[in-house]
Write a protein that binds this DNA or RNA. Structure first.
Length: 572
RNA sequence: GGGCGAUUAGUGUAGCUUGGAUAUCACCUUGGAUUUCUAAUCCGAGAACACGGGUUCGAAUCCUGUAUCGCCCA
């Protein structure tokens, strides 16, 4: 809508001056009309009534009378000035390519490599990848980044377990702990295989104190950048991480770069930052020799306002390495975006203040609320999880049932391909379409829903447009749209498409991918209405104008799908 | 104990940044069209802003109190 506002503003200023309205406070009131049937932009005229000493209705009428627009029409409806963009202006927007924008590094997922990817982690990955895709579609140069926690306690436990526990021991422990070992097609994947060791070690920890001491020793050495330990850690987690990445790739999620936490200890950058922090006015030292920043003056509240960045023994903490990590990220990109769970809010704030003290810019952060199971929180440790691999299998199976019914004519192989695309797309879209700050309760029926307002509906619209294109064959559509004859659902469709870049940019700027998802759903609805009202091919004859619109819609649907991670298959 | 966020029809959600028209889109219930260029369609009806107070000509939106839920802090 910003493009239209920019286009209207000069004429509006002239009109307002003519009517005698002082100041430019009204500029922010000019916004998207809440009544789509009334126009694209609306300006409520209540405040002008007071200033001019006339009724709001009259003010609206006077403004309309004074307004000369070349990009659309204005009308006074009660106390509102409604502005409707002309078809010519809207069509002109369609051909505009998004301009090239700056670089951005988006860090997301970054899950501990201690077990299979589960649906609790999926929100981070889906949100993050949706941001990656939307930024790319909008012209940004994007780096998708995964931060590998290769030295923490989780990895330590995994490593200890793999080095110290026999297979039968693991199975006995899990049986005692009532964690079921479910046979699935994915059992052989290393992430599924090795998580059993991780779970078993966590169970053993409760009865055998030597587990903790063994793990602690490993973790301590890793924090001293002990090369042998780090190599053993990597040997433990890398196959798990690889398995997780296979799952993510199945969802269409890939990364451009991986950065390991340990590198910041190895290269000494953490040490340098810790020294620098000692010069901060917030710096303090606890009795045990640990160093901290006192953050009370920075608006951090609660029982403890201290941010510890160095232990008594001189070693760094996770958050300290995070500081070095951000310093490193800034050398690689012009802007930074992190996708984090809401449990990281405080830590993120603390890191932000510390970065400030170090004169390092703070990143943008998007927080999302957790996905919980109906019967509580998900936990890999306790085995209370729904693994993504299983969810995607189930999604495909359910999609297959539907596709099989509708397309009995297709060969089995094709049905499998379509149902896999539908399953993955539906799963992603069901996460991406919800506002990040809202909590999600995982329910199979929601996760696998193929109803309207879902990915399959959009995919089907796209496939329909593809089918029409195939039927129409190679027809010359270079003549362009005849804007004078556009009306009804065809005009609505064009209008919807014209605002694509606008909606995309707004969704990016306001960190609200769900708004772009909503636009995409609406585009699919608009296309279906157009399809009902306007025949592209009637009795074998191709209507060129309608074909042009259908082709534009096909292109917008495809680009929209790609921007949110829906797979735009051409047949279904 | 303190901090942050959430609460919208039977269900799931949008709108809140920047107050303004009849509160969005679906599921659901229900009435209808159409049987195709791929019906996973289209048109209509029903039903909601947690509760109390305040600011305002005007509050889902801003302020404040309460309740409930989630997350975090030793």
């Amino acid at each position: 809508m910003q493009a239209l506002i920019d286009a209207v503003l000069p004429s509006m200023e002239t009109a307002m001056a003519k009517v005698g309205i002082q100041g430019d406070f009204w500029k922010k009131m000019l916004s998207r009309s809440k009544e789509a049937s009334q126009g694209d932009l609306a300006l409520p005229c209540f405040p002008f009534a007071k200033q001019l000493g006339i009724s709001p209705d009259e003010a609206a009428q006077q403004i309309v009378n004074a307004l000369e627009l070349d990009i659309g029409q204005a009308a006074a409806v009660g106390p509102y000035v409604n502005i409707r963009a002309s078809m010519a202006w809207l069509v002109a927007q369609l051909s505009k390519e998004p301009e090239s924008k700056g670089s951005i590094l988006i860090e997301h997922t970054s899950a501990n490599p201690n077990g299979p990817f589960h649906v609790g982690r999926a929100r981070n990955a889906v949100l993050g990848d949706t941001f990656v895709r939307m930024h790319r579609a909008s012209g940004y140069d994007v780096t998708a980044e995964y931060y590998v926690d290769d030295m923490g306690k989780q990895v330590g436990i995994l490593c200890w377990a793999l080095e110290n526990l026999e297979e039968n021991q693991v199975h006995n422990l899990l049986a005692e702990g009532e964690i079921p070992i479910e046979e699935s097609p994915h059992s052989a994947k290393e992430d599924h295989a090795r998580v059993l060791w991780y779970q078993a070690a966590n169970l053993l920890k409760a009865q055998d104190p030597t587990v903790d001491s063994g793990v602690t020793e490993l973790v301590q050495k890793s924090e001293e950048a002990d090369a042998d330990i780090l190599a053993r850690f990597e040997a433990s987690y890398q196959p798990v991480l690889d398995g997780m990445l296979v799952t993510l790739a199945r969802m269409g999620i890939t990364f451009d770069s991986f950065t390991k936490e340990s590198r910041f200890i190895v290269d000494g950058s953490v040490e340098i930052l810790m020294d620098q922090l000692e010069t901060s006015e917030l710096h303090g030292v606890a009795e045990n020799g640990a160093h901290f920043l006192e953050l009370e003056s920075k608006g951090v509240k609660g029982k403890s306002t201290q941010f510890y960045y160095r232990r008594g023994d001189g070693s760094s903490l996770y958050a300290t390495r995070d500081l070095a990590y951000h310093q490193h990220k800034w050398t690689r990109s012009g802007s930074l975006l992190n996708i984090l769970g809401e449990d990281h809010k405080l830590q993120s704030k603390q890191v932000g203040i510390a970065l400030d003290e170090l004169n390092i810019r703070t990143p943008e952060v998007v927080f999302y609320a957790f996905t919980k199971l109906a019967d509580g929180k998900m936990s890999t440790r306790r085995g209370n999880v729904v693994f993504m691999d299983d969810l995607l299998d189930e999604a495909q199976a359910r999609a297959l049932e539907t596709v099989k019914e509708i397309r009995a004519d297709l060969p089995a192989e094709k049905l499998l391909g379509i149902s896999e695309a539908v399953g993955v797309s539906a799963t992603r879209f069901n996460i991406a379409r919800i506002s990040p700050e809202k909590g999600i309760t995982f329910r199979w029926s929601d996760a696998l829903s193929l109803e309207a307002d879902s990915a399959p509906f959009i995919m089907y619209s796209h496939a329909r447009a593809c089918s029409i294109q195939r039927k129409a064959g190679d027809v010359d559509i270079s003549e362009g749209l005849n804007t004078a004859e556009l009306s009804g659902s065809a005009a609505d469709l064009v209008r919807r498409m014209a605002y694509m870049n606008d909606v995309l940019q707004t969704a990016i700027d306001s960190r609200a991918p769900h708004n772009f998802c909503a636009w995409l759903s609406a585009l699919a609805v608009d296309y279906n209405r157009f399809y009902r009202d306007n025949y592209v091919i009637e009795e074998g004859v191709v209507n060129i104008q309608n074909l042009i619109i259908s082709e534009l819609a096909r292109d917008h649907l495809r680009r929209g799908c790609e921007a949110v991670g829906i797979i735009p298959i051409e047949e279904m």
